[in-house]
Amino acid sequence: MNAHQFLARLQQGYDFNTTHRIFSQSGFSSCWKQWLTLELASVLASDSNIEQLETDVFYPAPNERQQALEQAQEKSQTKTQKKPQISDKKSPEANEKNNEKAIDKTFVETGFLRVQNGGDVSVTTRKTSASRCDFAFKQKEQSYFFELRCSHTDTYTKQKDLNKCLADIERINALKAANPELEIACLFAIYGVLTPQDTKALSLLDNNQFCSYALDPNLTGSSSISRLAHVKHSGKPRLILGMYSA
Rank of each mutant, 00 (worst) to 15 (best):
K75Y: 03
W32M: 08
P180K: 01
G119A: 04
Q5G: 01
E100F: 13
A94Q: 14
L113T: 01
Q12M: 10
S143G: 07
H152R: 15
Q12G: 10
F135A: 00
I225G: 04
Q209E: 10
N218V: 03
C150I: 07
Y213Q: 12
Y213M: 09
A72H: 12
P60S: 10
A41W: 09
K33C: 02
L182N: 12
A177D: 12
V43L: 06
S30R: 13
D206R: 01
A94C: 09
T55D: 07
K97W: 15
K79R: 09
S29T: 14
K232I: 05
F58S: 05
F112P: 02
A8V: 08
E54N: 12
A214Q: 00
F146Y: 11
Y213E: 10
H230Y: 10
V43P: 03
K138Y: 05
N207G: 10
G221V: 06
A102C: 06
K138Q: 01
Q25Y: 11
A68F: 06
K127R: 14
G242D: 04
K164P: 00
P196L: 07
T55Q: 13
L36W: 12
K236M: 02
P62F: 03
N173L: 01
D134R: 11
Q209D: 12
Q34I: 15
E183T: 00
T155R: 10
K90M: 12
A72C: 03
K89L: 11
A102L: 15
S46K: 05
Q81P: 02
V231A: 01
R238D: 01
K127C: 06
S222Q: 11
Q159A: 14
L239A: 06
V121S: 05
V123H: 04
L40M: 15
S26T: 04
P84H: 13
V115K: 00
E93I: 13
S131N: 11
R65G: 02
